[in-house]
Design a protein around this nucleic acid. Structure first.
Length: 488
RNA sequence: GGUCCCAUCGUCUAGCGGUUAGGACAUCGGCCUCUCACGCCGGUAACGCGGGUUCGAUUCCCGCUGGGAUCGCCA
């Protein structure tokens, strides 16, 4: 068996999701920090699937998680799909490995077989609660001295906890943490069916996969002491630990579906860019002076554990949108190609036939208007339709009888303009309205509604040029008809 | 309740003994303007409390309060 990271001194980190649901936004933050560290140090990012909760784990969830990771661009060097030298990378495929470690633990006297059933213990726990609601139930050690190698009843494997002393470790984020061992009990390591529990499975895998740094959410901090005990009982090198502060809901409670989107897929569907989402998440517990906006390469070079904070944070959708928007606005963060690829599915979802050339020309005008790709697609809707979807209120307000002739005249002006480029169009238009003693602001809205079907859009002449002369003229004439037909 | 952890504007945070406590989002004014955005200018807004240490505490120590995590044959 390959063990440890002997072949290299580069860090090996991992993200070990449980396929019991979609990829949670908090999980992404954990994955991101690990990934950044691997990229920065030239280390290895391992993806491991912890599917030992057979009740809730499904292959479908695993697929969703991997898809989300790919969408985010958090690639892994070793994992269930790509394999690797320390595989397999699904815990349920590693059952034999856990048995080897169980045997080692038992032979060293650090673990024992326990035939107490869950029902028996639940009853004891309940009885204790009855007598003293504040009392803390601890496994009484009934089977501690059992010697039979194969009891006549189903048995679980329990760790023989020291019962006294203390464990101290140096957390890369929280600093020195010391926990007394007196409260630790003989935890179950492996179920009767041979499936390991979290603390044991994770330790065995981290050992055999050569993980050198375990970075995970602060909710796992409580698991660290018993895990360290396991490393020590097995005589293996204890990895480094880095715990990340919690990401909470706006009201300070645990972030859940109740508070809105927690699944990565939902952000994808909202049109948030992966880089924008990651940028928002990295600022949760990590900062770099006053800098807020980072490209991925930027993050890789700047990230480090020393700049991680310890305080929990609350999720803020508004800020996420703002950060993601910043990424969409800046060409150096979202290239035209990336923007195109990002917004296109949202346009297509609206049933629009996307003209690539027009879309590229539209980009500079819409980048700063659509907070998300979904927004942008909505704003660009009229660019890819024969005629715009007419907003009733806008039409009623601006396409009125007194404007009908004007709209027709503008249509003619547009039809005859020698140059249909925005600047030329604008000067021709200005000359036209000046001749009528009007100002741009007097006629802009009717024309805008005619061209776009709405009261808000980029500059009129930009829009006209974008949809093209024929379409613009047709829309103006159609609007003139509407105006003429309106009551008035 | 036991154990562990945390504590700067509403939110994310900078600060690593001496600052008019900074930035960003949000919010409120204003500018720009063909609308909407973008952009720009400005305002409101924070060191939880009490003790120490120190010439001097947001910063170091202790206590309190508050918040979170966990106490499973979930992860």
């Amino acid at each position: 068996m390959v063990e440890g990271g002997a072949m290299t001194d580069r860090p090996r980190v991992r993200f070990a999701p449980s396929p019991t649901g979609y990829l949670h936004i908090g999980g992404v933050r954990t994955a991101l920090f690990n990934w950044l560290w691997a990229k920065k140090t030239g280390g290895t990012f391992v993806l491991r699937i912890e599917d030992t909760d057979q009740e809730r784990s499904t292959p479908e969830n695993e697929r969703i998680i991997l898809d989300s990771m790919r969408w985010l661009g958090l690639d892994w060097a070793e994992g269930p799909d790509v394999g690797g030298p320390h595989g397999p990378y699904r815990q349920m495929e590693r059952l034999g490995i856990y048995q080897e470690f169980v045997a080692e633990l038992i032979s060293k006297g650090h673990a024992y077989r326990c035939t107490c059933t869950k029902e028996e213990l639940d009853a004891q726990r309940e009885a204790l609660k009855q007598n003293d609601p504040k009392a803390q139930f601890r496994y009484p050690g009934t089977c501690r001295e059992r010697t039979a190698a194969t009891p006549d009843r189903p048995f679980v494997i329990r760790f023989k906890a020291p019962g006294s002393g203390a464990v101290t470790y140096k957390d890369k984020v929280f600093g020195e943490v010391t926990t007394p061992l007196s409260t630790l009990q003989d935890a179950v390591l492996v179920r009767a069916d041979g499936v390991p529990l979290y603390n044991f499975g994770a330790v065995v895998d981290d050992i055999t996969m050569g993980i050198t740094l375990v970075a995970r959410g602060r909710d796992h901090m409580i698991n660290t002491p018993p895990q360290i005990l396991l490393y020590e009982a097995l005589g293996r090198k204890v990895p480094e630990f880095a715990h990340l502060p919690m990401m909470l809901a706006p009201d300070g409670s645990k972030l859940s579906k109740r508070h809105g989107a927690v699944s990565v897929a939902e952000y994808k569907d909202k049109g948030i860019s992966p880089a924008g989402l990651l940028n928002y998440l990295v600022r949760f517990g990590w900062s770099f002076g006053d800098e807020e906006i980072f490209s991925l390469p930027d993050l890789i070079s700047k990230f480090d554990w020393e700049r991680c904070g310890k305080g929990d944070g609350k999720f803020d959708m508004k800020k996420l949108s703002a950060v993601a928007f910043e990424h969409l606005k800046r060409k150096e963060l979202t290239t035209d190609e990336a923007y195109l690829a990002g917004v296109r599915p949202f346009l297509e979802a609206r049933g629009l036939s996307v003209d690539d050339d027009r879309l590229v020309r539209a980009l500079p005008l819409f980048r700063e208007r659509g907070q998300t790709w979904a927004d942008a697609a909505e704003l660009m809707d009229y660019l890819f339709r024969e005629s715009p979807v007419m907003d009733e209120k806008a039409s009623k307000k601006f396409l009125v009888a007194p404007k009908a002739d004007l709209l027709d005249e503008v249509a003619s002006l547009f039809a005859e303009a020698p140059d249909f480029a925005p600047a030329a169009l604008e000067s021709a238009f200005n000359a036209f309205i000046a001749g009528k003693g009007l100002e741009l602001k007097d006629v802009a809205q009717p024309v805008r509604v005619a061209l776009t079907g709405r009261t808000a859009s980029p500059g009129l002449f930009d829009v006209a040029a974008l949809v093209g002369r024929d379409t613009a003229v047709a829309r103006l004439r159609a609007a003139a008809q509407i105006a003429r037909a309106s009551a008035g």
